[in-house]
């Protein structure tokens, strides 16, 4: 009996003219993420070399504090993008959540009722959008754009002004400091964000739901023919993204002890950009939560560098963010392309 012995990449990278290539390269799946990591490190050490105190551990720890909301939202977005979708509503869900939370707390609702309620609401809105996308075949971009209008519309309808939060639990969560090491402290929000990242990464890698997410993004028709619950998976990722956005809103309201209907405007694009920088393909089927984490770190580090630079006005801040984003994406493309 003859055995067909095949090593992978018979037809692509491992062409007869270039037999040695494989040896030097890591698994092609990880190239975008490694490229991001390398560039992130370069950026970090450039900062360390140029600014005093940049090398202190608190700079890294503060990255998580300052970007906790973006991180949580990006995690939900990662799931959605891996299925080949997109969720534009996340920023608006944040504003809806903060406004509602502040209003309910001001109205004397117990915080332990408000918390699950707003999370549930975010998840429900996500589920609704997922259902519209799946059952009525509305393009995700449009369905979630409608969700954006709806969520922000609700937020503005509740209150157009910033509402302060005076609830004890919120206050204490906001003020609570976790000491990691001497002189290095962090907040509840950053710890929450890190926990969310870890759970999400585990779910994507080790559960059936996680693998179905990849399958749906890789080829939804095939996934259906393989008997996978495509509809349920699609609805679930939007639900998850809605939940993450609501959680982001809660973190926001804890950080700022206030709620405002114009909070989180444009955050959806930051989250999408973070995912893309982290190597999550907008076409679906490929990407990792840790990639998105790196993407958020890139975003955060850009902000940090700008802060350290100090003398930049708002206009230059925007331009520098744009330029760095540009440099980053182009570099990543060059690295990824060369690897192939």
């Amino acid at each position: 009996m003859t055995t067909v012995d095949m090593t992978p990449a018979t037809n692509k990278s491992n062409s007869p003219t270039n037999p040695r290539r494989r040896v030097y390269l890591p698994n092609t799946k990880y190239i975008p993420i490694l490229a991001t990591l390398t560039l992130l490190l370069i950026m970090y050490f450039t900062g360390v070399a140029n600014y005093r105190n940049f090398g202190q551990p608190s700079v890294v720890v503060n990255l998580f504090r300052d970007n906790a909301v973006l991180l949580v939202v990006a995690v939900g977005m990662t799931f959605v993008i891996i299925t080949g979708g997109i969720d534009l509503s996340v920023g608006a869900v944040i504003s809806m959540t903060t406004t509602l939370t502040a209003t309910l707390l001001a109205g004397g609702w117990p915080p332990l009722v408000v918390l699950p309620l707003v999370l549930l609401l975010g998840a429900l809105l996500g589920a609704g959008m997922g259902a519209v996308i799946h059952f009525f075949k509305v393009e995700p971009f449009i369905a979630t754009l409608a969700g954006l209008f709806l969520a922000r519309g609700i937020a503005l309808f509740i209150n157009q002004n910033s509402i302060p939060i005076r609830d004890k639990l919120w206050k204490s969560l906001s003020e609570y400091r976790i000491v990691l090491a001497d002189g290095v402290v962090t907040k509840v929000t950053s710890v929450t964000a890190v926990v969310v990242v870890l759970i999400a990464a585990a779910v994507l890698a080790w559960t059936r739901f996680g693998r179905n997410v990849y399958a749906v993004g890789g080829n939804a028709d095939s996934a259906l023919l393989m008997g996978l619950p495509v509809g349920r998976t699609k609805i679930a990722v939007y639900t998850l993204s809605g939940f993450c956005a609501a959680l982001g809103g809660v973190l926001f309201s804890i950080n700022s002890t206030s709620g405002w209907a114009l909070q989180g405007q444009g955050l959806e694009l930051d989250a999408i950009a973070a995912c893309v920088i982290g190597g999550v393909l907008l076409t679906g089927g490929s990407g990792y939560v840790f990639g998105s984490l790196l993407g958020v770190m890139v975003y955060g580090l850009i902000q940090t560098i700008i802060t350290f630079q100090g003398d930049l006005n708002a206009a230059w801040t925007r331009i520098i963010i744009g330029l760095l984003l540009f440099g980053f994406i182009v570099l990543q493309r060059v690295v990824t392309r060369r690897a192939k």
């Binding site: 209008f149 709806l150 519309g153 609700i154 503005l156 309808f157 209150n159 157009q160």
Partner: peptide, 8 residues
């Protein structure tokens, strides 16, 4: 305050 909701 309801304009956006209406539009939505």
């Amino acid at each position: 305050k309801a304009t956006l909701l209406f539009k939505a």
